[in-house]
């Protein structure tokens, strides 16, 4: 029997999730429509023709992403908890960390796929080129990672409560305050063409957040999944 290793199992789980999404097309499509809806509804705040919207474009972008991401996380965890698949995964010789990382990275892939479509549409609707500064890609990568990292952990916890739909945002949003604030501020600074030294502190903050909570999540995931 071949030896199990974390990398191989993590990839197997990601592959399974991507395949599942490819067949059902449930998660990304519903997230995308919802994200666009948030963007459109938010735009009613501004008077037409005003340039005010450029100043808060970063906020709208990240809020749309967070709200649709909450939907996606819940749905992605549902495929594990319904039918007892999580139990079955825990029965395999796979390490708990491979299961957790697999779920985190498949959620990350979904969120990146969502943004690949959303970014250009956002540029059209808001007349703001978010990608004018290449550092934006670093902000997107680090913030999305932090979001799905704690999002995956909390969606698992929320899925075992009596009120899972409401529990996920209630637990997740307060904890995510630092990186959401950082991502919004960094994005706004880039839209305003500020130099790197003005917003590098925000990127550092997001990276520190990601590192701290990666370590904590890997430690606490084991007791969370064990019955």
């Amino acid at each position: 029997m071949a030896k199990n290793n974390i990398l191989k199992d993590t990839i197997a789980i990601i592959r399974k999730d991507v395949m599942l999404e490819f067949h059902t097309r449930e998660v990304i499509s519903s997230m995308l429509v919802f994200a666009l809806l948030v963007v459109v509804v938010f735009s009613f705040i501004f008077e037409p023709g005003e340039h005010e919207q450029q100043r808060i474009a970063g906020g709208v972008y990240w809020m749309a992403l967070v709200f649709s991401g909450l939907l996606g996380l819940g749905k992605s965890m549902l495929s594990e908890t319904s039918g007892g698949n999580l139990e079955a995964l825990l029965l395999t010789p796979t390490s708990r960390n491979a299961i957790f990382l697999g779920k985190v990275f498949s959620n990350l892939i979904f969120m990146f796929a969502l943004q690949a479509v959303m970014l250009p549409l956002f540029v059209i609707l808001y007349e703001v080129n978010l990608l004018s500064d290449p550092m934006m890609l670093a902000v997107i990568a680090a913030t999305t990672y932090g979001f799905v990292l704690l999002g995956t952990l909390f969606s698992l916890i929320a899925s075992r409560t009596r009120t899972r739909e409401i529990m996920l945002p209630l637990l997740l949003l307060p904890v995510l305050v630092p990186i959401l604030l950082a991502a919004i501020q960094a994005t706004n600074a880039m839209v305003a063409m500020s130099p790197l030294e003005d917003y590098i502190k925000w990127i550092r903050l997001i990276v520190v957040f990601d590192i701290i909570f990666t370590a904590i999540s890997l430690v606490v995931f084991d007791p969370v999944v064990e019955e």
């Binding site: 916890i157 637990l171 904890v175 630092p178 701290i212 909570f213 969370v224």
Partner: peptide, 25 residues
């Protein structure tokens, strides 16, 4: 107990980062 403990631990590490982020702000 388990789930709340996880939240208790994450919350404890989160609060200083929240403070730092708002102070930057």
């Amino acid at each position: 107990g388990k789930y709340c403990a996880v939240l208790g631990i994450i919350g404890f590490f989160d609060v200083p980062i929240v403070f730092l982020s708002i102070r930057f702000w």
